[in-house]
């Protein structure tokens, strides 16, 4: 059984935002509009790009950190969910079952990565935008929490194709929308348990670190960055 993970090379990321747009499109993220985004700090993204600045003045160095749910192996969010709407899947993806979620937002409070977002209002799909929705991913109702799923539907689809062809899933066959779009190939997705996978090799690089590894959450998103 696979254990899905991701490696993001911060030295390759140039902050173009392609991953963010791909994620929105792939996962049917609704636009929440100006009032909420601007007035209430409720920007609605599964994947954000956080600027990280070191130094100042002419010496300032800006680094862009693509940031999403890190799919903890020991996720704090699932412990606080009173209705088991969020859970750790058998392949290591932290799932969010919208039909179970009661919108208490405990998981959002528990998440040290600030990775979850909440549908405060019924998502709007003006004009023909609903027709452009990805049929593999549901349109969420109001009152539920949502977050990055590591493009779980793509994993399922790849497994389906592999099964139809009677072979195992090859390394690199499943990839997330963000990784697929990235023009600098900064994002790598794959099976951390596959001894030959690229993602496993990169995750063991000397440049690799995990966000807030000290919390004991065991994230499966690794970052690569040059050593200071």
């Amino acid at each position: 059984m696979a254990r899905w993970g991701m490696v993001i090379d911060l030295d390759r990321c140039n902050g173009c935002g392609g991953c963010m747009a791909a994620c929105h499109k792939e996962n049917n993220l609704a636009a929440v509009g100006a009032d909420e985004t601007v007035g209430m700090d409720r920007a609605f993204h599964w994947l954000k790009i956080l600027p990280e600045v070191s130094g100042s003045g002419a010496e300032a160095e800006v680094r862009h950190v693509p940031h999403m749910c890190v799919q903890c192996d020991n996720p704090p969010c699932i412990r606080v969910c009173p209705v088991h709407a969020t859970y750790l899947g058998e392949e290591g993806i932290v799932g969010q079952v919208y039909s179970r979620c009661i919108g208490c937002r405990y998981c959002m409070a528990a998440c040290p990565y600030n990775a979850k977002v909440f549908n405060w209002y019924e998502p709007e799909w003006p004009g023909d935008l609903k027709k452009a929705a990805n049929p593999d991913v549901s349109l969420r109702p109001k009152g539920v929490v949502e977050k990055c799923t590591f493009c779980h539907h793509r994993v399922v689809r790849a497994r389906e194709e592999a099964r139809a062809a009677g072979r195992p899933i090859a390394d690199g066959e499943v990839t997330t929308a963000c990784a697929e779009t990235c023009p600098t190939k900064a994002i790598t997705f794959g099976d951390l348990d596959d001894p030959d996978s690229r993602v496993r090799r990169l995750s063991r690089s000397s440049r690799a670190f995990r966000p807030h590894a000290d919390l004991g959450t065991e994230p499966k998103v690794f970052y690569l960055a040059k050593k200071e």
Binding site: K25, A31, V38, H45, H64
Partner: peptide, 16 residues
């Protein structure tokens, strides 16, 4: 609207 929402994405702040 999706692009408007990420117009200023490095600041997590679109629409303005």
């Amino acid at each position: 609207p999706m692009v408007l929402e990420m117009f200023g994405y490095p600041f997590l702040d679109g629409w303005r």
